[in-house]
Amino acid sequence: MRSPFGWFLLKRLAQAVVVVFFVTLIVFGLLHALPGGVARGILGAQASNAEIASFNRAQGFDKPLPVQYWMYLSRLLHANLGTSYKLNQSVGSLIASRLPRTLVLTGVSTAVAFVVAVPLGVWQAIRRRRLADYVITTGAFVGYATPVYFLALLLVIVFNADLHLLPSQVPGTYNLGQLLAHPSVLVLPVVTLAVPTIAVFSRYTRSAVLDNLSEDYTRTARAKGAPERRVVGIHVLRNSLTPVIAMLGYYVPVMFSGAIVVEEIFNFPGMGLLFWNAAQTSDYPVLLGVILLIALATVTGSLLADIAQAVADPRVRSGLK
């Protein structure tokens, strides 16, 4: 671990661990911020004091807070997220069955968004302050400003209610294989989720390309006699893409936020819908388990993003020394 890169990795990992620790604190605190405690939420306002006391004993809620936190942490370290109050299943297995479907949804729409957004952003940058730039900029801001569920409604109204082209609901029993066998059910959810992502990534690409276009090395490439498409397509793009790809890592929590809305609207049987239904029934172990998992995914995402930047960009690499 004498190498700067190894040292950087170690430091970054330690930071990630600290962040996860804070997340567990927040999640634990959330659980105990419930008015009247968890028991009231689950058993309802009519529950007798004896019922509540026995529930609390069963869940260990009668112990002092630090002890409870310690129990919570040690359960987590054994990959035990608890058991759902309502579904009589471990939270771990509930998430495991739904996560792949959510990953398909978010993965496909991120890929679609990336493929559309990067060329758009590059195009805008080279047509800066021209009509195309203004039009795409406006489109990006409008796309960004549209609440996902409003966009979903519009798409449903047009493509389902009016044109009868695409299904608006995913059958709740679909497993991963069936989902992939019927891609038409994926179209509207994927598009809905991709639009705001395209908005964000095209803007980001645009500014990255603009920054690199004003770099000295761009002028060097031109002075060599490199044609403009080579200057942009090779010199500039190679350097602009690194931060954009890293951005994917930082984008994880936003993508999950979008997924929760999209899954609710299209009845898509993923983790978001699980979370949504758990919120309606105050199924706290599920809520907290999902939040923790997403926080872990976020921390991992930004860790990977940082590492990717460090590996791909010699400038960052040398900055580590």
């Binding site: 008015p35 939420g41 936020s257 939040i291």
Partner: peptide, 19 residues
């Protein structure tokens, strides 16, 4: 970082069950 790792929508949905 920890705050950012918990997406706002998830947090709000939990808060909605409380208040």
């Amino acid at each position: 970082d920890a705050g950012i790792a918990i997406p706002a929508l998830f947090l709000l949905l939990v808060v909605a069950t409380m208040v």
